[in-house]
């Protein structure tokens, strides 16, 4: 029957619309379901995953020593050339031997894609990824960083 189908159509259509409205109505009245994070306000409580790949850092211990021997395997592993290691030769005070060490560990954060291949490649675990993400600056040059601190040395025993 044409009329019967016609009415049935309208009834089912209205029902489907009502179902949708019921659902949105539920969320309109239940504010507990709101999932918005208020980002700059929750900075203090914001917890990032410890593995989050935000930038490359080189941890230094309390004696201002790091574990980088300047082997440049990270530089080779980097797919887009964001690492540049400038090496120098240190003279060991006790033995008098000349030893290769890093002068400057240049890190181009502006080129980095946070792939983590340098960390994987490092034989001495001298670098790691830090969970930071607020990198925006007004001058791009500020994103070129020197990771080893002034006057730092290779930790004894790291080869």
């Amino acid at each position: 029957m044409f009329i019967k189908d016609y009415i049935k159509d309208i009834a089912s259509a209205l029902k489907s619309l009502a179902t949708g409205m019921k659902m949105t109505g539920y969320y309109f009245t239940h504010h507990k379901e709101i999932i918005t994070e208020q980002y700059p306000d929750n900075r203090d409580t914001l917890v990032l995953a410890e593995r989050f790949k935000g930038e490359v850092v080189m941890p230094h211990d309390e004696n201002n020593e790091h574990a980088c021997t300047g082997c440049t395997s990270c530089e080779l592993a980097c797919p887009n050339g964001s690492i540049k290691i400038i090496t120098k030769f240190d003279v060991d005070a006790e033995t008098g031997k000349r030893k290769k060490a890093i002068d400057t560990w240049v890190y181009h954060l502006d080129l980095c894609t946070m792939c983590g291949l340098c960390v994987e490649a490092c034989p001495t675990n001298a670098i790691k990824m830090a969970p930071t993400f607020e990198h925006s600056v007004f001058d791009r040059n500020k994103l070129v960083k020197k990771l080893n601190e002034d006057g730092s040395k290779v930790r004894a025993g790291v080869e």
Partner: peptide, 13 residues
């Protein structure tokens, strides 16, 4: 505000 609450957001605040 109506849009925000339906869309489980806070809306302008």
């Amino acid at each position: 505000k109506v849009a925000a609450w339906i869309q489980i957001r806070l809306g302008p605040n």
